[in-house]
């Protein structure tokens, strides 16, 4: 990745902010990498934000510094709704937000992701959207069982359910109708892909994949947060092309793309994550993902004349 350069004098270092819910391994790695890339990085907490919606970027961030002094704000909140609203406000003030609001908003909503990718002709599992348990059950009949029920917002594999038949589906849909919030009452039903005991996660910077891992798991939800094991996945021309097209479709940025291998060998785009978790992915791939992110941020904030050097 990028070569380490001697740190710039403090005064000339571009200042960026990283908005977080709390500090995890990723945020720690990113902060170090941003400093190595020659930037000054302030950490801001989403819980401390007080945004005057009728004023501009001259107002103070929680640390007292005017927002307009930040060349960029990297959104790393685990709270997707806080991250999205903050991005919307900050971008509205003319600040550079990474990822951009529109990209994050598409990725945070599975229905919007599906629609956006479909318009770009990206292969995906079949999906039905419905708003009541009855309509959801009809949609599942069309998809045939087994199928997967997903919440339209949220990730980490929470509330994902594989349903084997109508009886199971009805129990889950009725339960969510009664107990779940509004977002859980929207039925997003997806074709179940019989995958080879693993799925692929590709890391994209801008519109280019820099590395990918296989996540192996006995459980059908292969999420490293749930104990899936990671190993290097080669960037084949087919995978690279799929990732480039999918990333471009959502506007590009710092993205983790979840890809499924169908039994017929086709690659299907499953989900796009806009606040990527990568702590376990640099070791198997040999790619310093935090450094690549920092370089992307550095290039975004450098004045045009300095970029040529």
């Amino acid at each position: 990745m990028s070569e380490r350069r001697p740190p710039a004098p403090q005064s000339t270092r571009p200042r960026v902010a990283m908005l977080v819910t709390h500090i995890r391994a990723e945020e720690k790695l990113l902060r170090e990498a941003l400093v190595v890339a020659g930037l000054t990085c302030d950490v801001l907490l989403d819980r401390e934000l007080r945004l005057d919606l009728l004023a501009d970027a001259g107002q103070a961030a929680p640390n007292g510094r005017p927002w307009r002094e930040y060349e960029a704000i990297l959104i790393r909140t685990v709270s997707q709704s806080r991250g999205l609203l903050a991005a919307l406000v900050l971008e509205g003030w003319g600040l550079r937000v990474i990822n951009r609001y529109e990209t994050a908003a598409i990725c945070a909503d599975k229905a919007r992701t599906t629609l956006t990718l479909a318009r770009a002709g990206i292969p995906q599992p079949a999906v039905r959207l419905a708003f009541t348990p009855a309509a959801g059950l009809s949609a599942l009949d069309e998809l045939s069982y087994p199928a997967v029920l997903k919440p339209v917002v949220g990730s980490w594999g929470r509330l994902l359910a594989r349903v084997r038949d109508a009886e199971e589906a009805e129990a889950i849909l009725e339960h969510r109708q009664t107990l779940g919030g509004y977002a859980q009452q929207v039925v997003y039903a997806q074709e179940y892909i019989e995958k080879p005991g693993r799925d692929i996660r590709a890391f994209v910077i801008g519109e280019r994949p820099i590395c990918a891992i296989y996540r192996a798991s006995e459980h059908w939800v292969t999420n490293t947060a749930r104990g899936g094991r990671a190993s290097n996945c080669p960037l084949t021309p087919e995978l690279v092309s799929l990732c480039e097209r999918a990333a471009a479709a959502v506007g590009g940025g710092l993205l983790a793309l979840d890809v499924l291998e169908a039994p017929d060998g086709r690659l299907l785009l499953n989900e796009i994550n806009h606040t990527m978790e990568f702590r376990n992915s640099s070791a198997p791939t040999g790619v310093d993902i935090a450094a690549a992110v920092a370089e992307y941020v550095r290039e975004a904030v450098l004045p045009v004349r300095a970029r040529a050097e």
Binding site: T21, H22, V78, S79, Q80, S81, V153, G154, S155, W156, R158, G181, A183, Q184, A256, N273, H274, T275, M276, E277
Partner: peptide, 11 residues
């Protein structure tokens, strides 16, 4: 104690 995981938390 860290705040509990909320419905909209994720990547």
């Amino acid at each position: 104690l860290a705040p509990p995981c909320e419905e909209d938390w994720g990547e």
